[in-house]
């Protein structure tokens, strides 16, 4: 029992944390290192970096796209993320000493969120099973992630309602984990299950779809500014290497053929040399001179 306790509460948490941090870093690095060579901002797009940052923030916090698609789903999803945040903060109080005032104040909302969480997860799971199209397109991972969260939150709730959680020992354990000190294992009970499931979540999180939050920031449509400068910059970037011509292209109507045809035609019309823009303008007296773009163009 002693050895098992050391394994579960002494070794596994550190291993899970390493997997969590390492996995997240690995995936984020992979994403960050992948270029997006094609400029394709989604109209209407902001022209500068600050505008793009606002656009992302608005998407992340208000989720206008989801609202557009389905207001009920929007409400459920928004509530789910809020509950996850509150639950996270609710647990945070175990890991700090002394507990700051504001964390203590969040205890009641945190408890409420803990009760709402399984309900919301169940509704979302039902929705996945009820929609014929969505069910067809779902794979086992689409069920795994909410199922894991559901098991985690149910075990947490059960721990509180079926038995009295050993809060003092848990707090000592949490503080020990933060401070890298050994702490005695809490007595056997539902807490063990809850704790192991949490470790499982840590290990799974970096690899699956729970990383979607970071995925938002990859969107080229939302993340690219739309300006003359950004488009010109792309021309010298990664994409330039993709569009390099291969072996010489043969074409029945290539630049040479076209030039020859033009020469022919000009010779026939008595024109022998290329007119510059200014000469052309002078030869067209009475023609209106359009000053060129400005104002609303050229963004």
């Amino acid at each position: 029992m002693e050895a098992l306790g050391t394994l579960v509460f002494g070794i596994l948490p550190h291993a899970a944390l390493a997997v969590l941090l390492g996995g997240c870093a690995w995936r984020l690095w992979g994403w960050a290192a992948t270029p997006e060579p094609w400029p394709q901002p989604l109209t209407p797009a902001p022209a500068g970096r600050a505008g793009v940052a606002w656009r992302f923030l608005w998407q992340a916090l208000a989720m206008p796209a989801l609202w557009r698609a389905n207001p009920i789903l929007w409400a459920l999803v928004w509530l789910l993320h809020l509950c996850l945040l509150l639950t996270f903060l609710h647990h945070l109080r175990l890991f700090v000493q002394p507990v700051p005032e504001w964390l203590m104040a969040l205890r009641a909302p945190g408890r409420l969120a803990g009760h709402l969480l399984p309900l919301l997860l169940l509704i979302l799971l039902m929705r996945r099973l009820a929609g014929p199209v969505l069910r067809r397109l779902s794979v086992w991972e689409d069920y795994l992630a909410p199922a894991l969260l559901l098991a985690l939150s149910l075990s947490g709730l059960a721990m509180h309602s079926l038995e009295r959680p050993p809060l003092v020992e848990i707090k000592a354990l949490a503080l020990g984990l933060v401070g890298l000190r050994a702490a005695p294992s809490p007595p056997a009970g539902l807490f063990w299950l809850h704790f192991l499931l949490a470790l499982g979540l840590c290990c799974y999180l970096p690899w699956g779809k729970l990383m979607h939050g970071a995925g938002l920031w990859l969107s080229p449509g939302l993340g690219q500014p739309d300006s003359l400068r950004s488009r010109a910059a792309a021309a010298t970037g990664q994409a330039a290497t993709l569009v390099q011509p291969g072996p010489p292209e043969t074409s029945a109507w290539g630049p040479e053929e076209y030039r020859a045809a033009l020469k022919n035609r000009w010779a026939g019309a008595g024109v022998h040399r290329v007119m510059g823009a200014r000469e052309r303008a002078q030869s067209l007296t009475g023609h209106r001179q359009w000053p060129g773009p400005g104002g609303d163009h050229g963004r």
Partner: peptide
């Protein structure tokens, strides 16, 4: 996959929520 972030996002970050269907 290595050269297009937008493609990776679509394949790796999709939550399968179905909001795009309609």
């Amino acid at each position: 996959l290595e050269g297009q972030r937008g493609l990776r996002q679509a394949l790796e970050a999709c939550v399968g929520c179905g909001a795009c269907h309609q």
